[in-house]
Amino acid sequence: MIPNLFDYQRAASLDEALALVGSPGTKVIAGGMSLLPLMKLRLANPERLVDIGRLAELKGVRELPDGRLAIGALTTYSELAVSPARHYGLLGDALPDIGDVQVRNRGTVGGAVAHCDPASDLPAVLLALDAEIVARSKRGENVYAADGFFTGAFSTALAEDELITEIRLPGPRDDAGSAYASLAQRASGYSIVGVAAIVIKEGGSAITKAGIALTGVGDAPYRAKAVEAALIGNEGTPESIAEAATHASDGVTVNGDIHADSEYRTAMAVAYTRRAIAAALGRLG
């Protein structure tokens, strides 16, 4: 199918992009993996596209002096998969199964975060890791915590005039184990349930910190705080993990569709949460 007519402007600099973002009828395009399919079906009909795809300042992955990892918003999934980010167990799990190779070669980290598909994998990973999302506007820079950023289906805390420039991940640590486990919707490849899990044992045998986030289950990717709470102080026995996982969709209105009704999705949220936590603990040794 063919999109409706629109005007196109390629931003030559970040400042030029920021001057255009937020005007009525304008959408930002980077890889276009989320936006173009909607436009082809005429479900999205912007009057103007601002192409930020060439902004070199938004590309690349670098380690910050404090050990954190800064991922430029235009970094593709494929680039991320060969960057130091792959050493985070949950990213190593998630990246090879996001979309397909063609999508990973074009789809960008910033695009996935800004689009906030309710079944997108990357937001769950960022939530679990307590990542930061850096945005810019003409007004200046704004740093969002991932927790709280994903506000609903295709909806984020990003202001109309803001562009995501960078994602920052906390530095890797030896006392953390992480994993990602998902059940895919066969046709689309999106997750029916995706669970990102990170567990930390700061000395001793008990879990002292946990980040558990789910996608596909509710309106938007979310932190499963009841699961996290149940894990703290927990030794990570199979029984205790299983118990913690039962809280996977506490307080969430669970989605239902032809591929997974809400009852099934609820059960899978529990099962995959348990699996992700167990795998994360397994990596902790």
């Binding site: 059940l183 066969r186 029916i192 591929h259 997974a260 009704d261 009852e263 099934y264 059960a267 899978m268």
Partner: peptide, 11 residues
Amino acid sequence: FTAQKVWHAIQ
């Protein structure tokens, strides 16, 4: 035999 159908049958 989609996953959800099989799961429901098992349940």
